[in-house]
Simulated assay, not measured.
Amino acid sequence: MSDIPSTIRAESAGPERFHWEDSAELHKCADGGGLFHNLKVIRRGSVSELVRFVMSLPEDEQDDYAIQKDGDRTFRIGEIRALSRRADFPATDA
């Protein structure tokens, strides 16, 4: 699923809900970013699970991680922290 709204007919459907259940991968930021960068997955899970995991780490270690949402984008620590503060952030996965 994608959080990007369609541009067909330039219709606005209002605020899109965030797809917390989408699959994602946790990457270590300092892993070099070389040819096999995408193979260096630390953990897989839903976006909400990985946000929760990163936020459970000591604050000085959180900067070392990024979440790659499948088919969408990469979230660095500033965005991960902002996601964890959203009103619609699930406390647990159902």
Rank of each mutant, 00 (worst) to 15 (best):
V51E: 12
A94V: 04
A82S: 11
Q62K: 10
F89G: 11
I77T: 00
T74R: 09
D64T: 10
I77G: 00
S23P: 10
A30K: 12
M55V: 04
Q62N: 05
P90H: 13
E21V: 02
H19L: 13
K40W: 08
R9Q: 05
E61R: 02
S56K: 09
G34C: 02
M55G: 05
A13D: 13
Q62I: 05
V54L: 08
D3E: 14
Y65Q: 01
T7N: 12
D22V: 15
I8H: 08
L57I: 02
D60W: 07
E49Y: 05
E11Q: 10
D3R: 00
E16M: 11
F75P: 00
L57E: 07
R76N: 00
R52Q: 13
H37G: 12
D60P: 02
G78L: 11
K40F: 08
D60R: 04
R73F: 10
R43S: 14
F89V: 12
G71I: 08
R17S: 12
S12A: 09
D3Y: 01
R44T: 08
M1E: 14
G14Y: 03
D64S: 14
G78E: 13
W20A: 08
Q62R: 14
F18P: 03
V54W: 07
D3I: 03
Q68M: 02
S46E: 06
I8W: 09
S6L: 11
A10L: 13
A13Y: 12
D63W: 15
E49N: 03
D64F: 11
D60M: 10
A13C: 06
Q68I: 07
D3L: 04
R43Q: 15
G14K: 08
H27G: 03
R44C: 11
D60T: 11
G78I: 06
W20G: 07
F53L: 12
D63A: 15
H27D: 00
I42V: 15
S46G: 08
A87G: 08
R52P: 01
R76S: 00
C29S: 02
R81S: 07
K69I: 13
Y65H: 08
G71R: 13
P90S: 07
R9W: 13
S2R: 13
S48G: 04
R85M: 15
I67T: 03
S12E: 11
S56V: 01
D72P: 01
S23M: 14
D22S: 15
D60C: 05
I77A: 00
E61N: 02
F18Y: 14
E21L: 10
F53V: 07
G32T: 06
A66D: 02
T74P: 00
F75Y: 12
R44Q: 15
R52F: 07
S2C: 15
K69L: 14
L57K: 01
S46Q: 04
S6Y: 02
L50G: 02
R86E: 14
S46A: 04
A30C: 06
F36I: 04
V47L: 09
M55Q: 03
S84Q: 06
S6G: 10
G34E: 04
A87F: 11
H19A: 11
R86T: 09
H37V: 05
A87T: 09
P58S: 03
E59V: 01
S56A: 12
L50P: 01
A10M: 09
G33Q: 04
S48R: 05
D31M: 05
S56Q: 06
E61F: 00
D70W: 15
A66R: 11
G71V: 05
R43C: 10
R9F: 14
R52I: 01
D72G: 10
R17M: 09
H27C: 02
D88G: 11
L57N: 05
L35Q: 06
